[in-house]
Design a protein around this nucleic acid. Structure first.
Length: 275
DNA sequence: GTTGATGTTGGATG
DNA sequence: GCATCCAACATCAA
């Protein structure tokens, strides 16, 4: 499911729903959900208060009042849901946090790809997953010079490079296709062949797409729902993702779908030409 | 029934 | 270090 905008929507939802709540009980039904020692995770989280919820790229950071943070990644289909309705719990509910107001924070994940781990809040920057992340759109570090030097280091296809979270972070398979369509760049263009103009466009449209994705509540193309169970609307504004065989909204040529770096890739063969 | 694809990341292998 | 391949898993469509 989630790229940066979807994770941000989940973060905002959780902030209004569970910030300040005490976690009175923790149940982990799928042991591999937790990276590290499961019983230690349960011990440390039980009885703590949720102080704040942050985000770095696609990682949710649930800050507890005991100096620890739950680093949570939803991967493909992870979902949080806050509810007191027991029917919200099913065979795909892998973690259940009982809160002091009687509600439960339920983590659902059909494909079981998502992961959580506990990390000392003051040492978050040392976490391997967090440490390697490149700058994300809408942040102060996301500048032309920084992005240019990071992209030009690579000779892989630009699509693959933009999906590499150590180059820049936040984009996933949907938004990267949209950014490249907006920027008029063919997804198989070699990264080190890009012009300053191309880099400027990647910067500009990454910011725009992330901003719009957040404003529209995220993209729901398969299964994404926020923590209140609502779908997003960004899917109504996509130009290429999932549009194969339909006319490009800019030039009228049919959108094509190919494989780039093993990922389904949508682009307009007329607007986006390899240089 | 079988095969392939699905908003991701990280580990193994050259 | 860099690039590529595959695994983790369940479901749905062709």
């Amino acid at each position: 499911m989630p790229e940066m905008p979807e994770v941000e929507i989940v973060r905002r939802g959780l902030m209004s729903q569970i910030q300040g709540r005490k976690i009175t009980n923790v149940e982990i039904r799928y042991q591999n959900l937790i990276t590290g020692d499961v019983s230690q995770f349960i011990d440390m989280v039980t009885g703590s208060v949720i102080e704040d919820i942050g985000r770095r790229a696609k990682f949710l950071l649930i800050h507890l009042d005991n100096g620890f943070t739950i680093i949570s990644h939803l991967r493909m289909e992870g979902k949080y849901r806050v509810s007191s309705d027991p029917s919200m719990i099913d065979k795909h509910s892998h973690a259940i946090f009982t809160l002091d107001n009687g509600q439960k924070l339920i983590y659902n994940d059909v494909r079981k790809f998502g992961r959580m781990q506990l990390w000392r809040t003051s040492d978050l920057i040392d976490n391997r997953s967090i440490a390697k992340l490149g700058p994300e759109p809408l942040s102060t570090e996301f500048t032309f010079d920084n992005l240019k030097s990071r992209i030009l280091r690579h000779r892989r296809d630009i699509k693959t490079v933009l999906l590499d979270q150590s180059v820049m972070s936040g984009l996933g398979n949907i938004y990267v296709d949209e950014v490249l369509w907006n920027a008029l760049i063919h997804p198989e263009t070699k990264a080190n062949h890009l012009s300053d103009e191309d880099i400027k466009n990647i910067l500009k449209y990454s910011n725009e797409e992330m901003k719009m994705g957040i404003a529209e509540g995220g993209s729901t193309v398969r299964s994404y729902l926020d923590s209140t169970g609502h779908a997003g609307h960004m899917q109504d504004f996509l130009h290429v993702y999932g549009k194969e065989g339909t006319p490009c909204s800019r030039c009228g040529n049919n959108i094509e779908k190919i494989k780039v770096g093993g990922r389904g890739t949508h682009f307009c063969p007329h607007c986006q030409v390899v240089k």
